[in-house]
Amino acid sequence: MTIAGYVFMIIGGLFFLLGGLGVLRMPDTFNRIQAGTKATTLGAFSVLIGVGLVNFEWSWIAKIIIIIVFIVISNPIGSSTIAKATYYSKYKPDNLVQDDLEKRGDE
């Protein structure tokens, strides 16, 4: 149980490392948001599950479930808001092929 928990923690750390590399290497804001949020979700989940496996008690598991629900709700909201704010600040990447939001108007 303890070894499995540490393996989960190491996997989470690797996800965080890859996310950081993605934020550094990606060309524009939208790609960076994509890299950052994926890494945050998966990395945080893995680290939290690892902590829960190492300390297998009900009080810890209840808190970990609350934290996971918080991340599940807050991460998409934050990233979509950043993306929308970037769009409305008239920033457009050079290699944009199709702009769907322009046709649809403000929503």
């Binding site: 609350i66 918080f70 709700i73 998409p76 909201i77 808001t81 704010a85 409305y88």
Partner: peptide, 22 residues
């Protein structure tokens, strides 16, 4: 000068509940 969309308006109320409990 920011128009909130559906997801932001209703998701933030959910988040407010969790923050209050915490």
């Amino acid at each position: 000068k920011f128009k909130p969309n559906f997801m932001l308006k209703h998701g933030s109320k959910l988040l407010f509940g969790i923050m209050l409990v915490v």
